[in-house]
């Protein structure tokens, strides 16, 4: 770095060049550092969506918190859903700091969620009608989330990488929590086994969708190129989906469960899993808040937010 000209006198091009040099060298960008506008906007979009998905993700599992079938399971799932809220907290703080120069706060994030401008992950729009779903979410939805999140552990944006490090450490507990529920059911009565299989069948398509479309030709837009260019992530959606198959398909099968795709197989020559594509139009529709539970969960989130408004007003030091 040249100490001769003041940084403030640098041209945008020089700043951009230095920025690229820094991320190429594996340096981390911090909240107050200069960053290109599309980097900031991509991060805001990615991280606020990630954060709000954690918050919305607490809701399908929330159903099973009071209902969990033993004291141990009640405690375990409470701790797990608490973590989801905690991950939301970490991620929203990261997003909020990025939005600060744009004059936006958590209030705006919540309002964007309620208005539909801010989307959340497809999986959290789905129904979770049985205890088997509670287990499946912990096992496979969290498993999928672990795959995408570990892929960003070395993200060029320091605050996000640090939040992910905390999150992934807790995800290890989540994965085992989910496995424990699933294992008990898979080794249990016929009724319990059926509960898991139903849950796998119900969630399969949503799990495939979780990683996003293979490329922009599927759904019209894809942020994956920008995120790879800026070293926020390394692998493509499809690579992550393949990783998920490799890690989890053998486990699913080993428990005597099946996946609801008779075309699914590992192609030795291509070294790839071959599978039936989910309905990407349905995916687009779901994330536009037209999923089976989208409205109800947004309604619950908004009702809680509005009901508690007096608390925030009462302690609002700006008043």
């Amino acid at each position: 770095m040249s100490g001769v000209i003041s940084y403030q006198e640098w041209t945008e091009e020089q700043k951009y060049e230095q920025f690229i040099k820094r991320i190429e060298a594996g340096e981390k960008i911090e909240a107050d550092d200069w960053m290109p506008e599309d980097y900031r906007l991509t991060l805001i979009k990615l991280i606020s969506m990630h954060g709000i998905s954690e918050i919305m993700g607490a809701l399908p599992e929330k159903e099973w918190v009071p209902k969990a079938p033993s004291l141990k399971r009640k405690l375990g799932i409470m701790a797990k859903v608490q973590d989801e809220m905690g991950h939301g907290q970490l991620l929203l703080r990261v997003a909020e700091d990025l939005m600060k120069p744009l004059g936006k706060t958590r209030e705006d994030i919540m309002q964007d969620l309620f208005s539909g401008r801010l989307k959340f992950h497809n999986v959290f729009h789905m129904e979770a009608p049985t205890w088997g779903d509670a287990g499946l979410i912990g096992w496979l939805v969290d498993g999928a989330a672990i795959i995408t999140q570990t892929n960003m552990l070395n993200a060029s944006y320091g605050p996000y990488a640090r939040a992910l490090k905390r999150i992934c450490a807790e995800e290890v507990f989540h994965a085992q929590h989910g496995e424990a529920i699933i294992m008990a059911l898979a080794e249990g009565t016929d009724e319990q086994r059926a509960m898991v299989q139903d849950a796998v069948n119900r969630w399969w398509e949503a799990l495939l969708m979780f990683f996003g479309p293979g490329d922009a030709t599927t759904t019209g837009t894809s942020k994956q190129d920008t995120t790879i260019k800026y070293k926020i992530r390394t692998k493509t959606n499809e690579e992550l989906r393949q990783d998920f198959f490799t890690k989890y398909i053998p486990r699913v099968l080993s428990l005597g469960l099946t996946v609801p795709d008779e075309t699914m197989q590992f192609d030795q020559q291509q070294n790839l899993w071959v599978y039936k594509q989910p309905d990407w139009n349905k995916f687009k529709d779901i994330i536009k808040n037209n999923g089976p539970k989208s409205k109800e969960r947004l309604g619950l989130r908004q009702t809680a937010y509005d009901t508690n408004e007096w608390v925030r007003d009462a302690l609002n030091t700006a008043n």
Binding site: A58, L59, K62, V65, P66, M78, Q82, M85, L92, N308
Partner: peptide
């Protein structure tokens, strides 16, 4: 446990849980 996810703000949700 019924309150989980519904507290006045996210930080409190975590603490209450």
């Amino acid at each position: 446990s019924e309150w989980l996810g519904l507290a006045p703000h996210i930080e409190e949700d975590v603490a209450f849980s």
